[in-house]
Write a protein that binds this DNA or RNA. Structure first.
Length: 373
DNA sequence: ACGACGATAAACAGGC
DNA sequence: CGCCTGTTTATCGTCG
């Protein structure tokens, strides 16, 4: 897949079906009432430099980083923050200081070096015990890694970096992390590539079949601890309902009839799948539909190839548990290309601020497919 | 009361 | 030998 500029197609040429509950959300920071939105980054850089953002924008970046691979800079007018909250991008975790401190993934400044006033503001939330279970913490750490696999040491580090509580906590929690990794079926130990072996121990990854459950637990934890009760009432597709992709994408349909998670209005998780077995997307997707001013956010999308694609070459990744995603940049926008060169209507779909990790993750898909899970 | 689940502690083995 | 990693067992608290 080339990474150069493309002429924008004006239709959705390849039929594909996206099934599952449909979350509609966006971030409130940047409003656009008509036409393509204006992006705060021009040109878009990967990763975006925090210094290039206005304070409000920088906050939005923090609110999505590190967990979200896509930061959305678009607003639905008339919607509250709660309505726009995205439960599938994991970005919502950063929208409350007492859940996930608004700090970048990179090494945080040690608290003693912070200004006293700021430290005093952060302390109550930052140093309180996070409500997340160790499974959730491990899950977030692994999900936030480019390769979707981490050694236990890096899991420690991620937790410490994102939850300062554990910076001062006694060492017992590390034991709990290891205990959880070993005991939980959700995590799988994989051997390091000996050619690149640096450090001790194995790598840990999330079992794809348990990922929806982990995500659900994570989301419920957030909902429970969030005052944002509106999150609980976001409309979602129910069984039998369907959502037509807007614009010219007539063949894109999201339906609720084959929901893996049932008609629970809380369910916003979509799954990527090939025709036979559901598989999971590598990264959350945030799809923008400028014509309708709607942001379609998909944690993962069940993706089915229809008969039309039968004679197409089989995607080498089709059985890997992951789907290969590509994007490219044209002018100030970025565009998503689904597997088998299915180009979503690129006027209708935009990816905003896809960060460098997503790029790496896309590259790692080949490794995952080749090395097995 | 009961079981499921999660947190915590501890012991132990193996590798570096 | 010390540390890290990984496994296993046990105990306790919470919740439905």
């Amino acid at each position: 897949m080339e990474n150069s500029s493309h002429t924008l197609p004006h239709s959705c040429p390849s039929p594909a079906t996206i099934r599952g509950p449909l979350p509609l959300s966006s971030s409130p920071q940047h409003t656009s009432s008509n036409g393509p939105i204006s992006l705060p980054l021009s040109p878009i850089s990967f990763p975006p430099s925090p210094s290039s953002f206005s304070p409000a924008t920088a906050e939005s970046v923090h609110s999505c980083s590190p967990l979200s691979h896509f930061t959305v800079s678009h607003c639905l007018e008339g919607q509250s923050v709660a309505d726009q909250d995205d439960l599938t991008c994991l970005s919502w975790l950063h929208q409350r200081g007492d859940l996930l401190p608004l700090q970048p993934l990179t090494k945080m400044t040690p608290l003693p070096q912070q200004e006293p006033s700021m430290a005093s503001q952060l302390l109550p939330a930052a140093l309180s015990k996070p409500p997340y279970s160790f499974s959730s913490l491990i899950f977030m750490a692994i999900e936030d890694s480019p390769q979707k696999r981490l050694p236990v040491k890096d899991i420690y580090e991620w937790i410490v970096n994102n939850f300062p509580y554990y910076r001062t906590a006694t060492g017992g929690w590390r034991n709990s992390v290891r205990h959880n990794l070993s005991l939980s079926k959700s995590f799988r130990r994989i051997q390091r590539d000996k050619s690149q072996s640096v450090g001790k121990g194995s790598l840990w990854c999330v079992c794809p079949e348990y990922r929806p459950a982990l995500l659900e637990v994570l989301r419920k934890t957030h909902s429970y601890h969030s005052n944002n009760s509106n999150l609980l009432h976001k409309p979602a597709l129910l069984e039998g309902e369907s959502y037509k992709m807007p614009a010219e994408c007539d063949s894109m349909e999201i339906s609720g009839q084959d929901l893996h998670t049932g008609p629970d209005p809380l369910s916003h998780t979509l799954f990527l799948s090939t025709a036979d077995s559901p598989i999971l997307a590598e990264n959350p997707l945030c799809l923008l539909t400028p014509d309708h001013e709607e942001l379609v956010t998909m944690e993962s999308v069940e993706y089915q190839q229809e008969e039309v694609c039968e004679d197409m070459e089989k995607d080498p990744l089709s059985d890997s548990g992951y789907i290969e995603l590509h994007y490219y940049e044209s002018q100030q926008y970025q565009y998503l290309v689904l597997p088998d060169d299915t180009e979503l209507d690129l006027e209708t779909v935009e990816i905003l601020q896809l960060d460098a990790e997503a790029q790496e993750a896309a590259g790692s898909l080949l490794d995952l497919a080749g090395g097995g899970y």
